[in-house]
Every structure is written in structure tokens, then in C-alpha cells.
Design a binder for these strands. Structure first.
Lengths: 253, 253
DNA sequence: CAATGCCCTATTGTATACAAGAATGCCTGT
DNA sequence: ACAGGCATTCTTGTATACAATAGGGCATTG
């Protein structure tokens, strides 16, 4: 599709992957100069890339402030999962309709990759691969538009996981992916639908379960965690909380 | 959301509307200089806008050739409608769940606008409003992500209509919109779902019915229409065909 | 010693200048 | 007269330069 400069595209993919693999975390600043120097290109192109990522909901931009990796709000998270459910439902429907035996091979190979990455302790790669499984599946629907949207919501889910999710939330999904494949192979539409529904539910639960308590936690309570540990640069352990617009993070170079 | 420069945003909206209202038709060239002069801004900003429209699937860009309003292929059209069905289904579901009486007022007011525009012979405005009805409805789902995606597919549908649709395909939808509102007011989920499904089907049919014959029509057949009417500047009436990558169109200024 | 206001620097927003590629029109040769 | 190749020109791709603004550090004062 958009295959203009390979350099630009390459940089885009790299940055995107870095975000999805959580090598860059929500709230991190992305200065144009820095990225330009890093990728060996001018700010002009960096700007295009950031604009694209912004359109995909991965980075915030504008307002004379450096671009940052987005910190999804709870409402954002809910909205994304809601849409993702609808889209994945459609994916199952369409893939089932055009199912070919060789698809199973492709999917199983991918799951093997996931297992390998997970086993090698490459947590981050594992997260990315788990997402790409869904994009791969979407590709088998034969519908490019659907692929685009699924890819987008899946990416955003990675971000949501980074903010609200528990650390080890990756490899749990592998088994569920296997079940989806099995249902597809068996041609059991109902089962496939049910499994996928359950899978998304699981992912959502993993992402948001830790938040149940925090949702009703007052700002004072959260901040108490910080003042209690004043002097450290991280809040007390056990909490994956992240102050949205934290001024506590220095991270200047 | 993206509320940086009002000038840039304004230009973006203007261009977008022009495309949706078919004031600019598929295949038309959008030169950066020209737009820049028109909007009183530099090519830099025009480029951003074109990039955005490209991401939304409304214009093609890249390849050292001037940006053009996209000419959706038949496969594109099918894919868009397929996804649109799934999304609108979800919209109905969610809107029904959070239904408030005042929503009916808002929707009915919008339909009145549609009727007014249609009655006043403002065919183009009518087309746009018909699309915006669905965006408005999506907004009532309370899900911003859904709104974005629905808006996007609706826009692309306008483009598809421009290429494949019959000229007078606008006001037919009004009655269907009314029925959707009625079903929502009645709280009848099944009916609402059914009506929406039917509505999308109707739109799709209006868009693609005329294409059945053309799909298998050879380039030679199409061109025959032109040579037969050589000297005129329009092909024979009855055909809304448009040669995809026509070199026959001059349109240089 | 703490709080506050100001200046300065760092970073983005916008425009312009430069380079490269593609299409078109013209010229020439047959 | 027609076809083919070449040069010109128009348009995009990329980089750089300039302007504006927000945030942070520092000095000053109560």
C-alpha cells in the first residue's frame, strides 16, 4: 500500500514495534530531533511517522509539547475492547467461511513462534507475537479493511496492557490461541465464536482486573504511595499504577 | 482531539467534505501547490492533510505522482461494506443499551435536515447528511473508537457511491433512517438490528447493482461509447462509467 | 530559608529552498 | 507522414532555516 520510501517505512515499523513491545512505555517522550538523528533522517519524515502513529492512537501529538506514547484512560481501554470484540467476531465469521486447510499450518507455526519466544524468556517479543496472531488471523478473512482495524485495536491493547496489565500476561494466551485454531479446523462456528469471545474476555480481564480497586481509589490515596516513598523514583511495589501526567518522572538526558 | 491549528483543521474538514459531497470526484488530482495557495498555507501543511486523508482511505498518495481522490475497486467496496455491517450492528447494540429519549429528538432533527436538503435539490449535501446520520448514531454508542471507524467506512461508502452508485441514490435512505429511529424508540432490538441490516444492504445494492454488467465489460466496450460520441465531451447517457486510469481526461489547467 | 517571578533554553510549528523523478511535448530520422 | 527518442517542465520528496511557545532553572525578595 504505502510503500514509498523504504527508509521511512522501516523507521515507522521499528518505532511501532518498540512501542508495542513496551521497549518504550506509555508517557515516554519522543523528541523529533532525537528520532531523526537515530533513524538518520530529517525531522520532516519523523513528523510524518509520528502523525501516522498518532492517527493509530499510539502516540499523542500537538500542543507544542514533545510527542509521547499514549497513556490510555480506563474509558479508552473499555472502548477499545468493545470494538475489538465486534471485529474479532466478524473475523471468525469470515475466516470460517473461506477456510482452507493450509491456514491451520500457518497459524500453528505462528503459535510455535509464540511458544518459543515465551520459553526463551523474551517476554516483550512474546507480547507482540500474541497480538500478531490476531492480525494474521484477520488477514485470512480476505478483507484488508478488517485487517487494518484489527491491527489497530490489537496495538492499542498492547498499550493498555502496558498500563493496566499484570506483568506476566503474555503466555497465558497461547493455549487459547490453540483452541481457536482447533475450533476453526473442526469447522465448528459456534465453538470458534465462543472461544474467541472468551479469549478477548480473558485478555480484557488480565488487563483490567488489577484496576478494579484503583478505579475507586482517591487521588490522595495514590499520592500517599508517592509521598511515603519520597526520594525513590518509583512508587511502592505491588502497584502498577502510573500517574497519568506524572511530573515525577525526570528522564531528561 | 487533534485541535492544533484551526486553519489546518478547517482546511482538512473542507477538503474532506468536498470529497464526500462529490464536489471532487474519484480520480481527480489534488496538487499540493494548488491546495496550498487555495487554503493560504504552505505545502508542508497540505501534505499533512493529504497524509491524513490517505490514512482514511480517501486519497491515494505517494509514487511521485499528484495525490488523487481514490477510485475504490470493487473488492474495496465489498470489503468496506462487509466491515460496515459488523460495525453498524455493534452500534445498534450499544445505542440500544444506553438509549435515552432525547436521542430520538436529535436523530429526528437530523433526518429533517436530510429531508430539507433533499427537497431543496441539494443532492450533494443530502449525500453527506445521509452519511452523517450514521456517525451521529455511532456517537450515541458512547464509544469514540467506534465513532472513528464508522465515520471512516461511511466516508468511503460515499466514495464508492460516487463511482458505482446511481445518481439519485440519496433520498431513498431517509425513510429507512426513520424506521431505524422508530425501532430504537420502541426498544425492539431485533427489529432495529434487522432494519439496519436491511438498510446497509439497500445502500450496498444501490451502489453495486449498476456494476453487475460493467464488471465483465471490456475496456474496448467502454471506449466504444466514446468513439461513437466523438466530438462531445461526455459519453452517451445512461452510463455512469468512469475509466479508472483514464488518459482521456485532460483537465490540465 | 522558602516562595515567586523572570529569563533562557529546548522543542515544536511553519515556511522555504533544493533535489529528483515522471510525464509530456517536440524534434528528428526514416 | 509517422514513430521513436530526447529534452524540458511540472510536481512531488526531503532537508534546512526561521518563528513561536512552553517549561525549567536561577536569581531575587519577603
Amino acid at each position: 500500500m504505502t510503500e514509498k520510501g523504504n527508509r521511512s517505512e522501516q523507521a515507522y515499523l521499528a518505532l511501532r514495534r518498540a512501542i508495542i513491545e513496551q521497549a518504550i512505555r506509555p508517557g515516554d517522550k519522543l523528541r523529533e530531533d532525537e528520532l531523526g538523528a537515530l533513524f538518520g533522517m530529517s525531522r520532516t519524515l519523523v513528523r510524518q511517522i509520528l502523525g501516522r502513529l498518532n492517527a493509530e492512537g499510539l502516540v499523542t501529538i500537538g500542543g507544542k509539547r514533545p510527542a509521547t506514547v499514549v497513556t490510555p484512560s480506563l474509558d479508552d481501554a473499555l472502548a477499545v475492547f468493545e470494538v475489538r470484540r465486534a471485529l474479532e467476531r466478524e473475523v471468525i465469521e469470515l475466516v470460517m467461511k473461506r477456510w482452507k486447510p493450509e491456514y491451520a499450518k500457518t497459524l500453528e507455526a505462528h503459535v510455535e513462534e509464540e511458544v518459543a519466544a515465551s520459553g526463551a524468556g523474551k517476554e516483550r517479543v512474546s507480547i507482540r507475537l500474541a497480538g500478531e496472531f490476531h492480525a494474521l488471523l484477520a488477514g485470512m478473512s480476505g478483507n484488508p479493511v478488517l485487517v487494518r482495524y484489527v491491527s489497530e485495536v490489537v496495538s492499542r491493547c498492547s498499550l493498555i496492557l502496558a498500563v493496566y496489565g499484570r506483568p506476566h500476561s503474555a503466555e497465558c494466551g497461547v493455549q487459547e490461541h490453540r483452541e481457536i485454531i482447533r475450533a476453526l479446523k473442526a469447522g465448528d462456528v459456534a465453538a470458534a465464536r465462543r472461544v474467541m469471545e472468551h479469549h478477548i474476555g480473558e485478555v480484557e480481564a488480565r488487563a483490567l482486573i488489577a484496576t478494579q480497586a484503583e478505579e475507586s481509589r482517591s487521588l490522595g490515596d495514590v499520592l500517599a504511595n508517592y509521598v511515603r516513598n519520597a526520594g525513590r523514583d518509583k512508587p511502592a511495589s505491588g502497584s502498577v499504577t502510573r500517574v497519568p501526567k506524572s511530573g515525577a518522572r525526570k528522564e531528561r538526558r
